[in-house]
Structure formats: structure tokens, C-alpha cells
């Protein structure tokens, strides 16, 4: 099969963080980890092109995946491989976006990353094969990926035994009995000692590796971000009240607080009366300005970022999180305070 391989700027050998904003480029050969991959998948399959792109560009640009794939149009790919991205968040998100888009185009597609990578959920129906945590595990990672690529090319199903870590897709179907009757069956099974039976397994939540502490807040730029749906009155950009598909940014310049009547929350998940009466209850600008003037923080980032958390799919939320990280990283923000109208964990 004719294979296109997607990697980031770092593994293409063109640079590190300073090249993260670079757009996609194509080479008509296997590059970096692709060379080892090519040697393992034999003569039947050929990496006809490698596309690489900077991580900030690939994870922070809406149309990046389409742009990456359109570069390969002249090379008639049949199968797209992305990664391995290990635990790198932006790279993982980009790999997932590329394979999801390739799958939508009807191509075979497969990505490789670590199971903690925030991009994992974005691969859609394309399989994701487990990688090690870092490039130190490159050898075993590429061997597993090569075996999976060969199976995928042969039209075989990839399962856990192949190192598949993406969840199987959930599809809606009609059961024979109503949910209430099934609940009675389940409660009877449970009373009979069956603790395995369930229609739904809880997801494993991500283990986020915490960022280190900010060393000197009086020198740091701090951003305010919220998932409480706070927007200028009238909701000029149409933020959704639930199941958000977008996030927005609004300027805080020249403001010392957020006055009643000029901002409102559109979140449909709770009573917005308190937030509308005093929007600082959602985005604490008054206090943040005070801290800026006192010198407790170096600078308040001049705009706040906002989405609606209510009913928003975890995959969308993760995506927004990565985009916010890219955005704030570019603006040299060192810390962010996220206000969330949700339930704090119990102690």
C-alpha cells in the first residue's frame, strides 16, 4: 500500500519549540521514525511521503488536518500513519486530527501515542495504538506500530491484543426492554452477587501531570479563563448554552470589574441569576486587577477565554483545553485561573 506518514517538526529534525509555529511541509520519502517503520513493513508497503508540521500550528489551527492531507493529494495515499506522539499533547491532538480526517476521507488510518495523551479521544473511529511514554521507548513502539499497520493494510480488525488503546465506538441501538425494566434485571443480578454486569463502564480519567509551581508570581502573566458561559450582553458570537462546539475570547482592557448588564452567562446548566447580577462572581476581574495593582501578579492577560461546560463532550472540552494552552503559551502566560460552575470534589 501507498502510505503517508505524519510527524511533528521535532521528529522531522527541523527544530524544537522555536519552530512550533511552522506550517506543514511534505518530503517524498520516509523521514525520522518513518525510516525504521519502512524497514519493518517490508516491500509490500511504501512510505511515499512524509508530512511534518509545527505542533502549535497543527494543534491550534482549525483546518490544519485538512491542509496536511491536501498536501498529499498528488501522492494517492491509501493509508495514513501518524506519530508516535508519546505523551506530547499538541502532537497527539494533531495526530488524532489527521487520522480522523483521513478516516472521513475513506482512507485507512492509524495513530500511535501514549494512553495519557489528551489527543487520544479525538481520533474518531480510527484506531490508536499504544506507544511508550517518550522517545526512549521508540524501538518497541515502532515495532508494535509496524505490526498494526500490516494488519490494518490487510483489512484485519485491531483489538487490545494489538495494543489498541482507543475506546471502541459507542453506537445507539434500541434494546428489547425499556431502561427501567433493564434496571430491575440488573438490580436482581446485583443482589444475586453479580458485580460484573453493567451496560456501561466508567471511563478512566486522565492522569494529568501537574505543571511545576510558578516561581515568581510577581513577574508572571496570569490569565482568567472560564467554562461558565460568560459573554458580553446579547451573546454577540452565539456561544451555546450547552454542548459547546466553540470557545471565545473577550478583551478585559480598560476594565476594573465586570458590570451588571454588560456581561451575562448563557450557560444552561444552572441558574444564571447570581452571575448576571455580578459577573465578577464568574470571572473575578475586580480582585485580579487589585492583585495586579498591588504587584502580587506581574500582569493580567488582557483577554479572558470562555466556553460553556454544560453537557460539553469530553472530547470537545479536551480540544478546547489544548487550544487554550497553545493560545496562552504563545502569549507567554505562565498561569491561568479557570472558574468552573461545577461540583468541587468532596474532601
Amino acid at each position: 500500500m501507498r502510505i503517508v506518514h505524519y510527524i511533528n517538526q521535532y521528529f522531522a529534525g527541523v527544530g524544537g519549540e522555536e519552530e512550533a509555529g511552522r506550517g506543514p511541509e511534505l518530503r517524498e520519502e520516509a523521514v525520522g521514525p518513518g525510516k525504521r517503520l519502512q524497514s519493518l513493513i517490508g516491500d509490500e508497503h511504501e512510505i511515499v511521503a512524509t508530512v511534518f508540521c509545527g505542533d502549535d500550528y497543527a494543534a491550534g489551527t482549525a483546518e490544519a488536518a485538512e491542509e496536511i492531507l491536501s498536501l498529499t493529494d498528488d501522492h494517492d495515499p491509501e493509508l495514513v500513519v501518524a506519530g508516535p506522539a508519546f505523551t506530547s499533547g499538541r502532537y497527539g491532538v494533531a495526530c488524532s486530527a489527521v487520522v480522523a480526517a483521513a478516516h472521513e476521507r475513506g482512507l485507512k488510518a492509524i495513530a500511535s501515542m501514549h494512553e495519557d495523551n489528551p489527543g487520544l479521544q479525538d481520533a474518531g473511529a480510527a484506531p490508536v495504538i499504544e506507544s511508550g511514554e517518550s522517545a526512549r521507548r521508540m524501538k518497541g513502539t515502532i515495532e508494535r506500530l509496524a505490526a498494526a499497520v500490516q494488519k490494518l493494510a490487510a483489512g484485519e480488525h485491531l483489538g487490545e491484543e494489538d495494543g489498541r488503546i482507543s475506546r471502541p465506538r459507542r453506537v445507539n441501538v434500541l434494546a428489547d426492554a425499556p431502561a427501567a425494566a433493564r434496571a430491575v434485571e440488573l438490580v436482581l443480578a446485583r443482589l444475586g452477587g453479580d458485580t460484573e454486569r453493567t451496560e456501561l463502564r466508567p471511563p478512566d480519567f486522565d492522569q494529568v501531570t501537574p505543571a511545576g509551581p510558578v516561581e515568581d508570581l510577581s513577574e508572571a502573566s496570569v490569565a482568567l479563563v472560564t467554562e461558565g458561559g460568560l459573554v458580553p450582553a446579547g451573546n454577540p458570537d452565539g456561544l451555546e448554552s450547552s454542548r459547546a462546539t466553540l470557545w471565545l475570547r473577550y478583551s478585559l482592557e480598560g476594565r476594573d470589574s465586570l458590570p451588571e448588564g454588560e456581561f451575562e452567562s448563557v450557560d444552561g446548566g444552572f441558574s444564571t441569576e447570581a452571575a448576571n447580577e455580578d459577573p465578577d462572581r464568574m470571572v473575578p476581574l475586580d480582585v485580579a486587577r487589585e492583585l495586579e495593582q498591588e504587584g502580587a501578579i506581574g500582569r493580567l492577560h488582557p483577554e479572558y477565554l470562555v466556553t460553556t461546560g454544560n453537557g460539553t463532550a469530553v472530547a470537545s472540552a479536551k480540544h478546547f483545553g489544548v487550544e487554550w494552552a497553545v493560545e496562552l503559551h504563545k502569549a507567554e502566560v505562565q498561569a491561568a485561573i479557570l472558574t468552573a460552575p461545577g461540583s468541587p470534589p468532596s474532601s
Binding site: Q207, G269, F270, A274, A340
Partner: peptide, 17 residues
């Protein structure tokens, strides 16, 4: 939920009030 640093507040509709 995995967030590394969480400040406990008083009610859903008003995280900072």
C-alpha cells in the same frame, strides 16, 4: 477529574462569589 490544583468554592452558579 484530574485537575491538579483545585480551590473549593461555595456553589455552582457563582464560583467566585
Amino acid at each position: 477529574m484530574g485537575a491538579p490544583r483545585i480551590v473549593r468554592t461555595r456553589g455552582i452558579p457563582f464560583p467566585t462569589g
